[in-house]
Design a protein around this nucleic acid. Sequence first.
DNA 1: ATTAACGGAATGAATATTCATTCCCAATCT
DNA 2: AGATTGGGAATGAATATTCATTCCGTTAAT
Lengths: 192, 192
Amino acid sequence: MEATISKRDKIAEAALILFAERGYDGTTVPMIADNAEVGAGTIYRYFENKEALVNELFQDGVKRLHQSMMQDYPFEGSIREQFTHLFYGMVRFAQKHLHEQYFIETHSNAYCLDETSRNTFQQLLDFFHAYIDRGKQQGMIRPLPADALIAIVFGAFTRVFTLIRSGKLEETTELLSQLEECCWDAVRVLSN
Amino acid sequence: MEATISKRDKIAEAALILFAERGYDGTTVPMIADNAEVGAGTIYRYFENKEALVNELFQDGVKRLHQSMMQDYPFEGSIREQFTHLFYGMVRFAQKHLHEQYFIETHSNAYCLDETSRNTFQQLLDFFHAYIDRGKQQGMIRPLPADALIAIVFGAFTRVFTLIRSGKLEETTELLSQLEECCWDAVRVLSN
DNA sequence: ATTAACGGAATGAATATTCATTCCCAATCT
DNA sequence: AGATTGGGAATGAATATTCATTCCGTTAAT
């Protein structure tokens, strides 16, 4: 049983990295098998097919990201505090699962996702929507469509982390703190 | 000759849309042929192969984007004015070629690009770098790595236009003007 | 009538998936 | 204990499918 779990995990991890680096279509099953050091057939013992594999990875990833952002969420805090919390939840997640955040981001609109995956992602978006609506009501967040604001922060965050992942940028406390400020200033109402 | 040009253009346009929507690997040559209402073989009369096709589209697109941003560039203007100009250069381009901006963005790191394509893109980045360095010297732009700042603005812009393209967001003068402000506030030094 | 453009079936390479077989280990028997 | 066996896990060669590219008969242009 021990070995079983480890083998399944090896497949999942190899697939995740490849999907993140080359995309779903650019990744072949033999590639996954090679990287996981597993026979091609073994993959089909654990996953129905390539599509089921990508969907399972996506759903797991989104759920973990969601958890990571919700952990110790300051329900009573200010909009600004909550923003920081969410931002660093994302950072923690990206740090822990270096490729997973990018995988999620790049596949969140992919045609290979089934309805369950889409719903799982939608739940995360719904939470952001609620947060943004609260922020708008309090006059803290710009009166732009919530989708646009989410896109702005996610877009900026993801691309900067892509640079970090590729080694073109060094991840420092300083950089993260400045990025957080950039993102906040992009969505907040300027108060001067 | 009239028909020839039109046929080549049909192939290029169909390919561009498919590459933007499904990515290079997710797009098959028969798909392109179908959408262009052309026999599969015809594609090879105009392009050496699939890779040459994607590279040609990419280079053309980047050059046009570059031109669009440089047209009437206010060399003597302020950093702020130049930012606005560049932003709307991008907007004009995205409006004119709805899928092209996204295609460029999503393929700018793709393995299918040849050296010429990479160089073409690098020229655009170099221009942004120079702009940002000037802005930093003047104390107008945050002291973050230029790559990070580019990533922030491009990331935000691209994702918002993805929403527009998919119909989830309506493109209005108001929205664009606010988005421009968001992007500027994300990279500028706050002066209060 | 000659030439060029075109389409789409044909081809071979690559890919996803299956399946007959091997391997491993724990349970059972002697 | 040591041998035997049953069954699930793993494998990778074989198969079925899909894809990029080529080829050649047909059509259109001059």
